[in-house]
Design a binder for these strands. Structure first.
Lengths: 113, 113
DNA sequence: TTGCTATTTGGCTAAAATGCCAAATAGCAA
DNA sequence: TTGCTATTTGGCATTTTAGCCAAATAGCAA
């Protein structure tokens, strides 16, 4: 594995890591419906404002959102056109998992009959 | 935000978290070319066998791979048909970031002329 | 059994991520 | 200025991750 490839995987992982948090996913999906300010996102997430602010900073650093200031309020906007495809992919994995789990349960029931 | 939605975001985040590591991404992309055993993956990643084994366990628990034992060797196989679409999405974000960074540099140069 | 290879598990340390509170900063209006 | 709202930053405690080594487990062959 050459260094160039390693760097690429690290860069990919860095972006994915920014996506790997329930609150951040929640906010991104919300931003898919249009820009929102920190106060609105804070209410939605239900955490401390400072916590939400830091989450948004993580998203910004990963390049997943961009920022627009209007006076004292800060609006965040989605900058990831493929978000819903991304989520769909994850959901498909989850569905497959659920299906397999179901299969396992059925198979156990059958065997113990 | 209702509990049901929160649970969904947590479940999504759990899967994404499993994807958010350079070595795990590396292994998944490798598995896209066919099944591999732990020794092969270990050589590729260049870490301790135990480390790789634990990474593979993370992937298995997330439902991203499945396992097939043959005697004493264990083969892992990809169980995520959308992997390459997923990666493409991340790459598109990275490209946008690179482009924006380039723009910024150019704009700085222009301003300081 | 003994030895060898393949893989996992336990344990431990170091690093990173989370989330809260308090405080700082910024814009705006009375 | 003072007060109020919006947001970020600093600091700290807790939890989670990561990665190594050593040891355990498993299959197989001499």
């Amino acid at each position: 594995m050459d260094q160039k490839s390693k760097n690429r995987y690290e860069a990919q992982a860095a972006v994915i890591k920014a996506l790997a948090h329930p609150s951040r996913l929640m906010m991104l999906e919300e931003l898919n419906n249009g820009k929102k300010n920190v106060t609105e996102l804070t209410k939605m997430v239900g955490a401390d404002t400072s916590t939400v602010s830091k989450h948004l900073n993580v998203l910004k650093n990963a390049g997943l959102v961009f920022v627009e200031k209007e006076g004292t309020t800060v609006f965040y906007q989605l900058r990831m056109p493929c978000l819903m495809d991304f989520i769909s992919c994850i959901e498909s994995v989850m569905e497959a998992n659920a299906f397999e789990h179901m299969e396992t349960v059925i198979s156990c029931k059958t065997k113990t009959k």
